[in-house]
Design a protein around this nucleic acid. Structure first.
Lengths: 143, 143
DNA sequence: TTATAAAAAGATAAAAAAATCTTTATATAT
DNA sequence: ATATATAAAGATTTTTTTATCTTTTTATAA
């Protein structure tokens, strides 16, 4: 469903959303150990998010990664799209390019309503919504 | 979501369900070209399904692969489990081993209802149910 | 201005998944 | 019996994904 890369990126982003701001950054290597992801790997993923304006970074002493308020209000799906591309979540379950609602594949009716509902949630929930759940005890870390 | 291998296997199984029986087998290489899957690859996958009693084969002249009535009545999910293993569809979206309904990860509420509904469909629909849809024009090939 | 601390970029390596090739076993027909 | 057609099994190759390592750039502070 999600690649390792997307999973790691989401874990990182959740951590950043809870614990960082422009005044309070975190080093890639510290973040890595806190969310159980290889340090060099998470650094790469964060660089990609920064390039796509889904996270921020500063170089040099007292530098590090953080999320600003705009980032925290991005829909969850944007982070997945940034790392995995759009096709991964949107393509036909059987990999058929012709499959759509007018020309449904044999698994379409069985799976698409759920997929659409999931995509809808991912599009309408932002990172901050997930953080609110965590703070209300509706979901939990650690990552 | 599904590996290439599972997608290929499901396409093969659907074809076999519609077009084969113990009196009417098909060669791996013929099936391969009909469903657009590499011949050596589909042969391997079918061998795995045969080993797990989800399909049948006969060697030698007039041999080939086919599904019997029991196979056609297997739930769709069994073919996926046979190829991808059970974990792939059941593990936490973020890959967290501790995640469950009592200790939900931040994506759990957002995704699990849909995943459960999908799994339920895959468990309760058998291959023949999909074939009936195709025959009624509710879904369509080619594969 | 120099040293240092950090991310960015790019190159490389390792592991897993996808795909193919070769050999063996088995059934059928001649 | 022998030749042939097929799946089964196993080995190998290729591609993709995952992960790491090295070098460069940039910002800070002494």
């Amino acid at each position: 469903m999600l690649s390792n890369s997307s999973k790691y990126a989401l874990k990182a982003v959740l951590y950043l959303a809870i614990h960082t701001s422009s005044e309070n950054k975190i080093l890639a290597r510290d973040l890595a150990s806190l969310i159980n992801v290889p340090p060099a790997y998470i650094a790469k993923l964060l660089q990609e998010l920064v390039r796509k304006n889904l996270a921020h970074s500063e170089k040099g002493p007292h530098g590090g990664f953080y999320l600003d308020e705009l980032n925290k209000n991005e829909p969850v799906i944007n982070f997945i799209y940034a790392i995995d591309g759009e096709d991964k979540l949107n393509s036909c379950l059987l990999g058929l390019s012709h499959c759509n609602h007018l020309n449904p594949c044999p698994l379409h009716h069985l799976a698409n309503p759920m997929r659409d509902a999931l995509l809808n949630n991912l599009k309408h929930k932002c990172i901050n919504d997930l953080v609110i759940d965590i703070k209300n005890g509706k979901s939990s870390l650690p990552l």
